[in-house]
């Protein structure tokens, strides 16, 4: 019996965002957009979903005069991501 995969992470864009954030301290919206190749609207929606579940936190601020949105993975997000990867490995045993 295969373990159930976290439906919130089992989505292409959300998984890509989590994969990026799992390896860095924090990343801003522009960087995530560049790395994933997603549109701003689509990325915003997925970031909101991850934020609402408590997997990431979003902080809005400024870099000089430009607005800057910074995303950071939470401890719960790290744990969920690790569990997701462990569950994926079961599929290949």
């Amino acid at each position: 019996m295969f373990p159930k995969l976290d439906p919130l992470l089992h989505s292409e864009l959300r998984l890509a965002v989590m994969s990026i954030l799992a390896g860095v301290d924090e990343a801003d919206f522009t960087y995530l957009k560049k790395q994933t190749g997603a549109t701003s609207g689509n990325l915003s929606v997925q970031i909101d979903k991850l934020t609402n579940t408590g997997y990431i936190t979003v902080e809005k601020g400024f870099k000089g005069k430009m607005p800057r949105t910074t995303c950071k993975i939470t401890a719960a997000g790290q744990e969920a991501f690790s569990k997701y990867v462990e569950a994926l490995k079961e599929y290949f045993k």
């Binding site: 989505s11 292409e12 864009l13 998984l15 994969s19 997603a38 689509n42």
Partner: peptide, 16 residues
């Protein structure tokens, strides 16, 4: 990148 694309376990691992 699409948010609702159905992925297999292999595709997920590859994406990560």
């Amino acid at each position: 990148m699409e948010q609702n694309k159905e992925m297999t376990a292999s595709e997920s691992l590859q994406l990560i």
